[in-house]
Design a binder for these strands. Sequence first.
DNA 1: ATGTGAG
DNA 2: ACTCACATA
Length: 343
Amino acid sequence: MGKRKHEETNNENLNKDFCDFLSELAQFEKNVSRNIHKYNAYRKASATLAVHPTRITSGAEAKKLPNIGDKIAKKIDEFLQTGKLQKLENIHKDERSQAISLLTRVSGIGPSKAQKLVEKGISNLDDLKKHSDLLNHHQIIGLKYFNDFEQKIPRSEIKEIEKVIKKKIKKIDVKYEINICGSYSFCLFPNRRGKAESGDIDTLVTHPNYTSKNPDKAHIDSVLKTIVRKLTNCGLITETLSLGETKFMGACQLKSDLPMRRLDIRFQPYDQYYCSLLYFTGSDVFNQNMRSHALEQGFTLNEYTLRPLGCTGVPGEPVEITCEEEIFDVINYPYKSPEERNN
DNA sequence: ATGTGAG
DNA sequence: ACTCACATA
């Protein structure tokens, strides 16, 4: 999902047109100007407007909100008066900017690599295909499946892939626990949050014998590699982008007439599994809210653990967690099923 | 070790 | 925000 521009904003955003141009400016600053501060500034401004309950009618009005200063206020006025932004018009006309923005959409190519390629005169995907010698393995696969990787994955397809993954892994040992996270989780229809489609397939795996206390490095290394080998042999996994002790990134294909899909598999310690599951199920906004609630209750929650905060603010020993509900329970937060975590 | 990239 | 994997030095 890394390459996708923006998350769906929830209930009717009255300032969506402003958010759109701010997001585009943010992308430009990140990918072309390589100015992370401006990138963050535009993103924050966009996020502020996205949740603002009323339609903004002037720059001055916007400026009263947090994260919006002089410059953005002026842009809002310009947009309100002319329906466009000269700065964006210029960017659209600029071939170098367009080339960098395009190359950046290839999985594995970031702003730095894109800039180097454009300096070498490469400005589109055909040029890039002719110069695959300049790309690493990840980037070659990203280019090969450029279109496939930008397709959303229907929930029904993820369900099928889930079946194959579970079947193959359980065949190694039924004690493995396997969950598909991300927007897949939320649903009544297809994904853990139940959204109808996802950008990629994020799989979490654990085994009771593998805990953070008892890492047994050599062994866990062979575990993930074995899983990946089996899923490759059965034809599901088609490409490996990276494979470490705890994380696989690659591609899979359910049927030959379907697109290649991005697949990640993480092997997590059993004692940290439910914090991970919560974290990777998201949504991002939900995680943020839940974490700040945890803080109010004197706990710190991250990808791995839920820990009480001592009076000095130092985190204590992790709370033992055996299911997702328990995390909600401990911090006194009303339980939300994955489908209810879209916000 | 450091930078890049993904998520 | 933070971590993992990789490439290069």
